[in-house]
């Protein structure tokens, strides 16, 4: 049955679409178009017009080993933080779904981290993970110098991964819990009657049935880990030490606004956008096949 609303005059339809079109154009296509234009020109930091340089900006970025280090740091960050945030959320949601004691508490409390602005939570984690006075300073008392995100690049990367994952665990948890609760109880009971234990039921019944949610969260988490990591990096490490945590999104900011290389930053934005688009296409193309939609 045709459920679409149709308008007798095409002009009325256009009128309804116009507000949305204006919003999308003003806040997405126009800035994106500007970025493309800047990336193909050399903009002078003190004003005075743009000089057309073609793909020179891209060439110089891609030839710079610093940029490639930033790309690999971003990929490491995206991979580990997405994996961590999704795994912890999945375990918590599975336990909450079984209605173990205290599950009502998780349900209420776990969404809160997502509501905290990235810089605020980054500041909190900066204190928590501070090598000289934070909770983790205990390990330095036992093995002096083992933990120092200010000097050790790996420690710094671990710090921002922990902070980012902590925020997204809450977000993922809500989606996972909703997915688990959408599975009819009788399916779990039928599997129990078929002789399947708790762990087996999880892998054979629950996990396959929440694959649409897992897929959705994977796409969202990876995309967000490229973009939403800015506030955390800025407050916790400022890209250091020795560029170890200079993620792509942070490098755009520091090259553009601190280094005043607007054109190079615009080109980096375009590359980041293409990378996210490619990753998303890849996920839809190769992972979605394994998803069971009901």
């Amino acid at each position: 049955m045709e459920k679409r609303v149709t308008f007798s005059k095409w002009t009325i339809g256009i009128l309804f679409a116009v507000p949305q079109l204006i919003l999308i154009f003003t806040f997405f296509y126009w800035p994106a178009g500007q970025a493309v234009y800047w990336s193909l020109t050399l903009q002078q930091p003190w004003g005075g017009g743009n000089i057309w340089v073609g793909l020179d900006n891209f060439r110089s970025i891609l030839a710079n080993p610093d940029y490639w280090r930033s790309v690999s740091a971003s990929l490491v960050f995206a991979g580990i933080s997405t994996g961590l945030a999704m795994f912890i959320a999945l375990v918590l949601a599975a336990l909450t779904d079984r209605q173990l004691a205290g599950s009502w508490l998780y349900r209420v409390v776990l969404i809160w981290p997502y509501g905290i602005a990235a810089p605020a939570l980054a500041l909190a984690f900066r204190f928590i993970l501070a090598p000289e006075a934070g909770f983790l300073s205990v390990v330095n008392q036992m093995w002096p110098g083992i933990w120092d995100p200010g000097l050790d690049g790996t420690d710094a990367m671990a710090s921002i991964i922990v902070a980012f994952s902590w925020k997204y665990v809450g977000y993922n948890f809500i989606f996972f819990l909703a997915a688990f609760q959408a599975i009819p109880r009788s399916l779990i009971e039928a599997a129990a009657m078929d002789g399947s234990g708790v762990i087996r039921r999880f892998w054979d019944i629950q996990f396959p049935l929440i694959t649409p949610t897992i897929f959705f969260l994977l796409v969202i988490n990876i995309t967000e880990s490229f973009q939403d990591s800015f506030g955390i990096v800025d407050i916790m490490t400022s890209g250091g030490p020795a560029n170890a945590t200079n993620l792509m999104v942070y490098k755009i900011y520091s090259d553009g606004f601190k280094g005043l290389d607007y054109s190079g930053a615009a080109a980096q934005s375009i590359i980041l956008m293409l990378l996210i688009i490619l990753l998303t296409i890849f996920q839809f193309r190769f992972l979605e096949r394994r998803v069971h939609y009901r």
């Binding site: 009819p184 009788s186 009971e189 039928a190 009657m193 069971h292």
Partner: peptide, 13 residues
Amino acid sequence: CAMVFQNYALYPH
């Protein structure tokens, strides 16, 4: 025991 459920409870996947 084996049980037949009201809504059948077949594994959809």
